[in-house]
Design a protein around this nucleic acid. Structure first.
Lengths: 218, 218
DNA sequence: CCCTAACTAGACCGATGAGTCCAGCTTAAA
DNA sequence: TTTAAGCTGGACTCATCGGTCTAGTTAGGG
């Protein structure tokens, strides 16, 4: 997994190495799938965008369905990693809690509003009826992130910096306070949201969150 | 007079009146679209499910795209009406505010988790790239509901029963506290959520909302 | 330097589905 | 009863696309 991160450039990537044709195909597949939807996406188009012959696609992945599943798996992995890295930052190092929360919130929003992340959720919504296992894949990611966030909140509560009874509920609500307004501003993920606006959302969410869960002043 | 004179047809709905074939087609279209997705939905299948000849579908709506748009418009109308009716209940009649909020929250969740509502959102996510105007239609509904909710919250604040500065933000966050956890529990709308669970979500949301926005005790 | 496995370009098949057309039937209204 | 508009069923056209196949090309390991 510690593979080179080099994104195969679009178009005429004559990456003559026969290795990571696979990666190129996965990238192209995600692009076409998310632009056109599973049903409308042509395997020919994917092959073309990957700079690869159609037969090569069928060599690597048996059929279109497996290609979709592998595409999802790859992206879910990457999204999980990013989100966990952000939640990791939520450790009590003694500074101002509000600042810390706003920073984490902002970074989570950036993950949430990332092009690939948005496309992944759109594609999931579109195809989860036909491919219910995709939902498991993505829901698993989301659950693990929430769980990890709950852990962090619990430790903050234990340290007396938050006042909450159920850290899982608090984590869920924290995510909701971020995601809801963000989705509204991004028109369900169809347009990018400028960072300044994300900061605003983060500020509002943390504000409400702290009003609800800050330890009693007395 | 003569109801069901002929038994000859494949005979689903022998609503022999020639009126509201249109309605039957719209209903069937929504069913098939939401089950199969736009691309995979066959006009033949829609016609069959409506108990109607394919030509009749093309008589009423010119082509598949317009059929989709009209389907959306019809459902968005109905959803708007339902949601507004619920928000309407949020008037200060002197009783316990928490009880009132939980009641409205629960009913909003019921709307949100309604079969048709869930299917509408799924379908929207799936097709909004190809049909951006559908997003306008649905976003318009959502905006009007949030706006109306903000109005109610503002009046409660004015009456001293809530303490908030920006009613629109509060309304957004109230919706987010409901929708986020609800979506998680319904696996993004793919399975129904029992009422008892919805009550739980409503309770948790209102609890946090009041912790954040209840007027200062002093 | 050659052999093999991966790759390429493109033709090809079969299925599916949008949209059209038509000839005959049903019903509301004149 | 007549008429016209709507409806029916089904055949038909045409385009698209998943997947296969083939014949020739490329590249790297031994």
């Amino acid at each position: 997994m510690a593979e080179a991160v080099t994104l195969a450039g679009k178009g005429l990537s004559r990456g003559r190495g026969r290795i990571d044709k696979r990666r190129a195909i996965l990238d192209a597949a995600f692009g076409v799938f998310s632009r056109e939807g599973y049903a409308q996406a042509g395997v020919d188009a994917i092959a073309a965008e990957a700079g690869v012959a159609k037969a090569t696609v069928y060599n690597h992945f048996g059929d279109k369905e497996t290609l979709l599943r592998e595409t999802f798996a790859a992206l879910a992995d990457s999204a999980l990693e990013q989100n966990l890295a952000v939640v990791e930052r939520l450790a009590d190092q003694g500074g101002d809690l509000r600042t810390l929360l706003e920073d984490v919130a902002f970074r989570l929003l950036q993950c949430h509003c990332d092009d690939r992340s948005r496309a992944l959720r759109r594609l999931l919504s579109a195809e989860m009826t036909r491919f219910p296992d995709l939902l498991d894949t993505v829901q698993g990611v989301s659950d693990r992130v929430t769980e990890s966030l709950a852990d962090r909140l619990a430790r903050l509560a234990l340290a007396g910096r938050l006042s909450l009874t159920d850290p899982l509920v608090a984590a869920e609500q924290f995510s909701a306070l971020l995601g809801g307004p963000a989705d509204k501003r991004s028109r369900l993920g169809t347009r990018p949201v400028p960072d300044t606006e994300l900061r605003e959302v983060a500020r509002a969410a943390v504000d409400t969150f702290l009003k609800a869960f800050a330890p009693a002043p007395a």
